[in-house]
């Protein structure tokens, strides 16, 4: 059985996650703040997390309910963190 159709997208996702972690780190190093920055970092985090769920955990290929459940969790957590930062402005 050929593993390439499965591994190649996961390798791309791995490199993408590495790059996005670098971006998040640089945002932190720049010392910038504000709701736009917090929103950018949280959306990046949501995107990264969903990549792990879809491709590493492999939930992209199971019943959509499970993927939706985890997306709802990530959206709720990142969204509520955003709300907490918004009310502190």
């Amino acid at each position: 059985m050929n593993t390439t159709p499965f591994i190649r997208p996961c390798t791309v996702i791995w490199l993408l996650l590495i790059a996005l972690t670098g971006v998040t780190y640089l945002v932190g190093q720049a010392g910038v703040s504000g709701m736009a920055i917090v929103g950018f970092v949280l959306i990046t985090t949501l995107f990264k997390s969903q990549m792990v769920v879809d491709h590493f955990m492999g939930l992209k290929h199971v019943r959509p309910f499970w993927r939706a459940l985890l997306f709802a969790y990530l959206l709720l957590v990142c969204g509520m963190i955003g709300v907490a930062y918004y009310i502190s402005l």
Partner: peptide, 28 residues
């Protein structure tokens, strides 16, 4: 130490990728 935090993020992401490779290997 933000560098340590970022380094650990890279380490865990890479570790997760290695586990993906382990699963792919056993499926063959």
């Amino acid at each position: 130490d933000r560098i340590a935090g970022a380094a650990n993020t890279l380490v865990l992401i890479t570790s997760s990728y290695f586990v993906v490779r382990a699963v792919a290997a056993i499926r063959t």
